[in-house]
């Protein structure tokens, strides 16, 4: 489904990704963890076309997508959320979700201007369905910027559901949330996002990773130091030393 082959990325003198190679099977849910600055978001940015790779290849569904623009990559069925929430604050909740359809391959300029009643109706229904799935149906007419953080994170998930991509990157979907909110988000991801699609989840909260992912990749200083099942990876010495050390000592 997704094959990352020796991905390298530098920002000036700093190498943020050093030959990362990961194979992800169709339908898999993979956690991507590591300390701050380890290259998790950089890797997502490279795969989704926001940053170009300095070396290596990204192969998705048998097609080399390295170097494509992020809008082209998105149109091929890849969607993402952002570590720092990105929404259209001056649009309503429903408009935010419905807008996610505008970049789908089904819309050409003519349809964007004059509309296609059937397609528009279908997308509007999908948007409303997505809002119901994340529990935001009652907030559909509110401006997005008036929502509290946990609901904004859910709005990002609704946007993903409405687009129905084949491959999803969730970048810290529980960032800034309380324990209870994190558990609710983990449940939402496990029940609504991961079934039937391939997912990569970046998160610092190990409870969410353990709940959602079947496999965990650990990055440290731009190097892949582990790629195992969750119960194995959290006990690997190199992972404890690089990332989980303090937690284990405290425990």
């Amino acid at each position: 489904m997704l094959s990352l082959e020796a991905i390298c990325k530098r920002f000036g003198d700093v190498e943020v990704l050093s030959g990362i190679s990961i194979e992800i099977e169709k339908g898999d849910t993979v956690g991507l963890v590591g300390p701050n600055g380890s290259g998790k978001t950089a890797l997502i940015n490279v795969v989704t076309g926001m940053h170009g790779a300095d070396a290596g290849r990204v192969v998705y569904g048998g097609r080399d997508i390295t170097g494509l623009g992020s809008h082209q990559i998105s149109r091929s069925g890849i969607a993402r959320t952002f570590q720092n929430l990105r929404l259209f604050p001056r649009m309503t909740v429903l408009e935010n979700v419905d807008a996610a359809h505008n970049g789908l391959p089904g819309y050409n300029l003519y349809q964007l201007i004059f509309g296609d009643r059937e397609v528009d109706k279908n997308h509007r229904q999908k948007s409303e369905w997505a809002l119901e799935q994340v529990g935001l149906a009652n907030e559909r007419d509110r401006l997005a910027k008036t929502l509290p953080l946990p609901q904004l994170r859910r709005l990002e998930i609704a946007r993903i559901l409405a687009r129905d991509p084949k491959l999803v990157f969730l970048d810290e979907p529980a960032g800034g949330m309380t324990q209870a909110e994190t558990e609710a988000m983990a449940m939402l991801i496990a029940d609504r996002v991961t079934p039937g699609r391939t997912s990569i989840v970046v998160e610092h909260k190990m409870s969410l990773i353990a709940r959602v992912c079947r496999r965990v990749c650990v990055l440290n200083a731009g190097i892949l130091i582990a790629d195992e099942k969750p119960d194995v990876v959290f006990n690997l010495p190199q992972v404890i030393e690089a990332y989980l050390g303090r937690r284990i000592v405290n425990a």
């Binding site: 926001m50 623009g69 992020s70 809008h71 998105s74 993402r80 990105r86 259209f88 970049g103």
Partner: peptide
């Protein structure tokens, strides 16, 4: 509003 997000949603900015 957010060209980066628009691009990530398939819009040719």
């Amino acid at each position: 509003s957010d060209p980066l997000l628009a691009q990530a949603q398939g819009i040719d900015v």
